[in-house]
Design a protein around this nucleic acid. Structure first.
Lengths: 248, 248
DNA sequence: AACACTTAGCGTGCAAATTACGATAAGTTT
DNA sequence: AAACTTATCGTAATTTGCACGCTAAGTGTT
């Protein structure tokens, strides 16, 4: 057994968005895909790592290429290092596409959370990318389905611990929208009255002067996320989910 | 900018142990270290990744070499990919030590939790490794101090969410020992009466028939961790630390 | 033997958080 | 005007968190 040489390191990024009802992920078509092969054409955005570039830098670069966005929530998750994760035709495609001769590609999985506004949708679709319901995805190129599944696992877990939900919502949102997001991602039903009470008592939401318009029911108040209040609360309290909450 | 070639991928592992009072980490001396250079001699156990080996496999291999242990709690944390994280003399040392010509080494950080019993201590010390108080460590070779700090951050975080504490304790332990571990790692004071109540009401501890012996106070009951009870509880309840706890 | 000392282990009370669910408000649709 | 939908407020029962008093059971000291 010898040390692995001629290997490449890449980043792949599951970019999530929320349209108010379902969770979406950004997929792109594999370029130079030949229809006579049986390689799946849809994949996650990704790239090889460049010289003089850290992994997070590579991930941000990929993200900006795909979405045009710079300040995006981005988090590293797992690494996919199975020696056979890309091989045969897949490996050939990669080497041909990048003009390299790599025997093995290890990839670092990231996930990003973006606000699905018109500008972002316009940018991504103009680039030929698609926002696809995560639930409807059956297979992707290479092991990207596995990477996506891992990203979803990590997202679920993180939504249970920290206020990343707000990264997926517009700056102004209703409490119902926030609740729908939790419901959709975690797959649980939530009592709206208690949810509202809880979330408001946390003090993390600031009401705006605006209300919903044109909805077929009582219009809801718009709120914004008060990040400072959250940071302050974190400092004051150690959340010990497993056993208990202790104060310092 | 071109795709990085001639790079290597390594794993480095912070192996933690608990002696009942303080948290320890396993350090090894750098071999082929020349005293006339100013490279720090102590480092974390680590290795380059081999062909036909995944990263977890490499980490387990490193761990077994260092501790003789096979079934060990091991978790991937961050990746250290700064292009300059090893360079100059450090990079030369690595290339000379491994007989390779790498321009860049990206490393994947892991941390492991082991039960510090006599056998393990004997094995590691026979190998020339040392168990060092984490608090007393000022500097390590390369960027291993950073890796260690990251591992500690991750350990703290994980101890707040899942029952990893038991990985650091012997199979049979007292409630006080468990409390001391939380106290030491998290740096907080805990009321023994409430801690005991809470931990016992969780149902995760099974009392054994044994008690402490030869202690200068009322001997405490030994307990074991009931992993099945924990798994069952996890299934039944979604712990949402950020907002709330919801039942399915 | 009596006493001090230490930690184990039990219990109690109050405050805060969780949760189920009733009732009303404010819009649109029919 | 009535039906419908979601927002928003309220209330009450229950559970959980947390501070802290007290006794139990050992060892060490005098």
């Amino acid at each position: 057994m010898t040390i692995q040489m001629n290997q490449s390191l890449s980043v792949d990024c599951a970019v999530f968005g929320f349209n108010g009802r379902t969770l979406k992920v950004l997929l792109i078509e594999r370029r130079y895909y030949k229809p006579d092969t049986h390689l799946d054409p849809l994949k996650l955005p990704g790239s090889m790592i460049l010289e003089n570039e850290t992994l997070p830098e590579a991930a941000y670069r990929v993200l900006e290429e795909a979405t045009g966005l710079k300040d995006v929530y981005l988090k590293q998750m797992e690494i996919f290092s199975d020696p056979q994760r890309v091989s045969g035709e897949e490996l050939e495609w990669i080497n041909r596409y990048h003009g390299i001769r790599s025997e093995r590609v290890v990839t670092v999985g990231y996930y990003a959370l973006v606000k699905l506004d018109h500008r972002t949708i316009a940018y991504t679709t103009a680039k030929g990318a698609q926002w696809v319901d995560v639930d409807s995805i059956q297979r992707l190129a290479m092991d990207h389905k596995q990477i996506l599944s891992a990203a979803l696992r990590h997202l679920c877990r993180e939504m249970l611990q920290s206020p990343v939900a707000f990264e997926l919502l517009p700056r102004k949102f209703t409490i119902r929208a926030l609740q729908n997001l939790y419901s959709a991602v975690l797959g649980i039903e939530i009592d709206n009255r208690n949810f509202r009470k809880k979330i408001l008592s946390s003090g993390f939401l600031t009401p705006t002067s605006e209300k919903e318009q044109g909805v077929a029911h009582k219009p809801a108040q718009y709120y914004t996320f008060n990040r400072n209040a959250y940071k302050k609360a974190v400092k004051e309290k150690l959340k010990l989910g497993f056993i208990n909450n202790w104060k310092y």
